[in-house]
Design a protein around this nucleic acid. Structure first.
Lengths: 98, 98
DNA sequence: TGCTAGGTTCGATATGCATCAAACAGGTGG
DNA sequence: CCACCTGTTTGATGCATATCGAACCTAGCA
């Protein structure tokens, strides 16, 4: 199982996904299927707010911070979350994807 | 599709399920698979708080209020929610069920 | 007609959280 | 070395919401 942090509690994961800004971030990460630069993941909020949301997602174990070519990126921990709560992340992303 | 109210937005549903008290209510409703009297659905909070949570769940379209033999009961709208957001409710309940 | 039991509604409180601007940090490229 | 670009941290602020007690409603029942 990867390495670092474990996926958070189901409550944490659901709370993380229940915010519109964060759900959109996750949706974009899921459709990209690779690490994405922070700045590509949000619109309409300030970067400090976005950074706050990144932290929530990270602490819930839904995303991970990686650095790709000097760029700070976020990666969706699909396998870890699906392994812990099968179907939860995928069905939510599918439902959000319209 | 039943009749009355539509299932709420995905955000509403996730927000409804992200509270521990409400998730437990849903978990009990799911395992019972039939309408359950309000008083059987919670512990540790006052009845006014519980009623507040019932309202949130109802407004999210997750549950429905029915009266069975003079008893006010809550029913999980499994089919409606699954029809709107396939897999979301079932996978969350499964994950919560440990 | 009361009486009781189970839910709901009403304020009131308090904690949480989303949001922002400003200051900070760490690379990259002139 | 110095600006610049990106993301994070730090307060501060305001709104949302979880919580409670008390009052209210509504059936059933004696």
């Amino acid at each position: 199982m990867e390495t670092a942090a474990a996926v958070g509690s189901l409550q944490e994961v659901l709370a993380a996904l229940s915010d519109p800004v964060r759900l959109e971030m996750v949706r974009r990460l899921a459709s990209a299927d690779e690490p994405v630069a922070c700045s590509r993941l949000y619109e309409g909020v300030s970067k400090s707010t976005a950074s706050h949301h990144f932290k929530i997602l990270r602490e819930a174990g839904v995303t991970e911070r990686t650095v790709v070519g000097g760029q700070t990126c976020q990666r969706l921990r699909v396998a870890d979350v699906e392994g812990t709560y099968p179907g939860v992340l995928s069905s939510i992303v599918a439902a959000a994807g319209d």
